[in-house]
Design a protein around this nucleic acid. Structure first.
Length: 798
DNA sequence: GCCCGTCGTCTTTTT
DNA sequence: GACGACGGGC
């Protein structure tokens, strides 16, 4: 236990200092400086000033909760009620944590050093690494992401032959995750389950296998990070007492998204400390003061165990709690807020809350109904062009959708229209095979016990180590109770061909050599691994043009690791891997980029933009057909829509399509029920939706799929006029279709023909090279900007 | 052991 | 329409 806290900036503040203040003991001598209170409205001010054991700040969307939290922290420091090291602020994303840290630093300067402002997961990783030895783990443990979990389960299911029972990696992973979020372990779950059910019995065995494999690999999954921390604090009271003594003020953001395990963690950390537990205390300490901020209307993570009761029952849970309501909105126009209020008002069983602003009605919400997802995407692109030519910056615009699959059409059209964009989340980069390979190499170096990563790279690049050889190695490992990595080192003991044996030995030697340098620059380790393993050579020599792109990706990863080292001097390989494991989608957001942001509605939470597009507002998509079946799912989907609406500051666009492609198949789509909940006068429909929904649910889907287009048009609710007719639009689709117009020379005045927009005249040409953009006035479709290189156009005449 | 073609499955949201 | 599983030919 000694050396628990090094002499770094996080050493314990002495709680017994001259102005000792437990929660509830009243205020310190110093008053909160007026500059920290200036500009706050009355409830905000109260939320900053209140002192007591527990405080719930119910913060409606855009009501300035980050401001309140940061000013509250600054106030605690300025009055000397707390030392920085006594503050623990917990968020859900790194971006939120970084923003909070930055804003506190702006308010109090250097003094913020030593505070823990972290996500749930990274705070827990930190505790687990510090206590690993005590707990029987190595502090070099690695973290399995959902892909790793599935890969492991896939193998285990196959080994047990459980696949015939219909158990899939996905379903088993979800069940284990849910159970762990409920703070179950295998044994406690077994006690509550009825094991006569063969499916449950098989699941239980798999879970046991899975946990055993994780332990053997010296690895944790995401859910373990929280639950194991709770188990640790419960099992080792002395360890728990250290943390309880240290953290005197705990603040939790987005409290409505906490699950049972996270709730338990907060409970553990806010328990009092007695002298019996920590003899060096001069007196017993009351539990830390707890401040939570949240909004039950924005609870959208029930599917991963978030329990809305954590926030609704807060006052009952935490004795002496005070609740403060923030309802004044500083973000959106009244029109946007009215729409949001109207939608969320349809959720029963909620504490009434009404967002308001004094900043005026603003523009009307714009609505659009497209024929197809492509048509809808074209609307989005056209509006973006209009907004930006009116002076709005790309980075102030965001496009939201319910499912990641919807990005395809949007991306195709945005590329063609030359709108710069970035897809947030989707985590594409780290999911590429070559990046996963490179990361597996790094993990294998950092954590030699991790057999999953070792298996992944064992035969990449090809070394002639096939399934049979791998099985022989594993058998040898099992037989001698050693790890797979040990078995590779001792390959001489196995009867294998000389070529394969030499390859295995070489690989083991390379990995061991780099494992011996745990503090080396991660970028340097990666570079050596990639070149000495032959990985880069294999890509370089390949005739496949895609391998050139893969090589570039690997090089980009090397650049990422180097950048990491630059930002975190002394950051070692384990630190780097931890950070990359815990990045959330929202963390990728970079507002300096000058790009439109594309993301799911879930990712959008906590963000705001001048202009927002919410797309795919259709039945089956919003509410999503899967969610609608779950208990409480329909209400949660409504909250999701509400979250999307309230992200917009100035302009809100709502769009849907009459048909939506899925699996390459086109299906009819009906307007979402939520659209009808918005008062009609708030929306200016460019093209209104049909009232198809009323009948669609009663009709066999196949029946009206074949109806002529006119039947879509008749029966529009108060439709001013029929949808624009005209030739059926064919959208040039896949961007993978190789089109290269780089040779085409266009000048103002040229006539061109576009595949979708028909004929038009070039007005101007800007940009250089691959990024040349033509501004074209089409005879029928109006003004468009096109990326010349890839636009589906042909030149007609000079 | 490796390569390549065919066929079936799948998609909700994420730390 | 993408990806993985599987089987046949080398």
């Amino acid at each position: 236990m000694s050396g628990l806290w090094g002499l770094d900036d996080e050493s314990f503040g002495d709680v017994q200092r001259p102005t000792p203040l437990g929660p509830g003991s009243g205020r310190a001598g110093d008053a909160i400086p007026e500059q920290l209170l200036a500009g706050l409205n009355q409830p905000q001010r109260e939320a900053v000033e209140h002192r007591g054991p527990a405080l719930l700040i119910v913060a409606g969307a855009g009501s300035g909760k980050t401001r309140v939290l940061t000013h509250r922290i600054a106030g605690l420091l300025a009055t000397r009620e707390a030392w920085p090291s006594q503050i623990l602020a917990i968020t859900f994303t790194n971006k939120a944590a970084a923003e909070m840290r930055e804003r506190v630093e702006q308010l109090v300067g250097e003094e913020s050093r030593g505070m823990w402002i972290r996500t749930f997961h990274s705070a827990c990783v930190r505790i687990l690494r510090r206590e690993a030895e005590e707990f029987g783990f190595k502090d070099s443990f690695t973290i399995y992401d959902s892909g790793d979990v599935r890969a492991l389960l896939k193998r285990l299911i196959k080994e047990r032959g459980a696949d015939i029972q219909g158990l899939t990696p996905g379903s088993v992973a979800a069940r284990i995750s849910n159970a762990k979020n409920e703070l179950h372990d295998v044994d406690s779950w077994a006690r509550t389950a009825s094991l006569e059910n063969p499916l449950d019995a098989a699941f239980l065995e798999l879970w046991r296998d899975y946990d055993r494999e994780l332990r053997r690999a010296n690895a944790f999954d995401f859910d373990d990070l929280i639950s194991q921390t709770v188990f640790l604090l419960r099992a080792f009271p002395r360890v728990a007492a250290q943390y309880r003594k240290r953290f005197r003020h705990i603040l939790v953001d987005e409290y409505q998204d906490t699950n049972a395990a996270q709730y338990a963690l907060i409970r553990e950390l806010t328990q009092p400390v007695t002298r019996a537990e920590l003899p060096d205390l001069r007196a017993d300490l009351p539990g830390a003061s707890l401040t939570v901020v949240g909004d039950s209307d924005q609870s959208i993570y029930a599917f991963r165990g978030a329990d809305i009761r954590n926030i609704t029952d807060f006052e009952r849970d935490f004795h002496g709690a005070r609740t403060i309501l923030l309802e004044q909105n500083y973000r959106s126009t009244q029109n946007i807020l009215s729409a949001a209020n109207a939608v969320i008002g349809n959720n029963f069983d909620r504490r009434a809350k009404n967002l308001w602003t004094d900043s005026g009605d603003g523009a009307k919400i714009i609505g659009f109904t497209g024929y197809s997802g492509h048509d809808e995407a074209q609307f989005v692109a056209d509006e973006i062009v209009e907004l930006t030519s009116a002076g709005m910056s790309y980075s102030d615009i965001a496009v939201f959708y319910r499912t990641n699959a919807q990005t395809r059409a949007l991306e195709e059209v945005l590329i063609r229209t030359a709108v710069p964009y970035k897809v947030i989340g989707g985590t594409k980069f780290y999911e590429r095979a070559e990046i996963k390979d490179a990361m597996a190499y790094l993990i294998t170096v950092a954590n030699p016990d991790d057999a999953l990563s070792l298996r992944r790279i064992m035969n990449v690049p090809k070394r002639g180590i096939g399934p049979a050889t791998e099985a022989a190695l594993q058998a040898h490992a099992d037989q001698h109770q050693i790890t797979l990595r040990d078995a590779m080192r001792r390959v001489d003991e196995i009867a294998l061909g000389p070529k394969v044996a030499a390859a295995i030995k070489d690989l083991a030697a390379l990995l061991d050599e780099l494992s011996a340098r745990p503090e080396a620059d991660p970028g340097e380790i990666l570079r050596e691994l990639m070149s000495r393993s032959g990985y880069t050579d294999q890509l370089r020599r390949s005739p496949d043009p895609q391998d050139a792109a893969r090589l570039e990706n690997v090089e980009e990863l090397v650049a990422v690791t180097r950048e990491y080292r630059r930002q975190n001097p002394g950051g070692n390989l384990i630190d780097f891997l931890t950070e990359t494991s815990l990045v959330a989608a929202a963390d990728e957001l970079d507002d300096s980029g000058g790009q439109v942001s594309l993301m799911t509605l879930h990712t959008a939470k906590g963000l705001e933009f001048d202009a927002v597009f919410i797309t795919g507002i259709e039945e089956e998509l919003m509410p999503h057909r899967m969610a609608a079946m779950e208990p409480g799912g329909e209400a949660e989907e409504r909250r999701l829509f509400y979250v999307g609406i309230t992200r917009a500051r100035q302009r809100l666009h709502l769009s849907l399509a009459m048909t939506r492609a899925q699996f390459g198949q086109v299906n009819p789509a009906a307007p979402s029920r939520y659209l009808e909940e918005i008062p009609a006068e708030l929306i200016d429909w460019r093209t209104p939706p049909t009232t198809m929904r009323a009948t669609s649910s009663q009709r066999a889907v196949g029946r009206w799929r074949d109806l002529p287009r006119e039947s879509f048009v008749t029966g529009y609710r108060d439709a001013p006029k029929a949808l624009p007719k005209g030739p059926k639009r064919e959208f040039a689709n896949t961007i993978t279709e190789v089109r290269d117009n780089s040779g085409m020379v266009l000048e103002p005045g040229d006539r061109i023909r576009h595949k979708d927009f028909g004929e038009g005249r070039v007005q101007a040409v800007t940009g250089v090279d691959k990024k040349r953009v033509a501004e074209v006035l089409f005879d029928g479709a109006g003004r468009k900007r096109l990326l010349i290189k890839i636009a589906p156009i042909e030149k007609l005449s000079p």
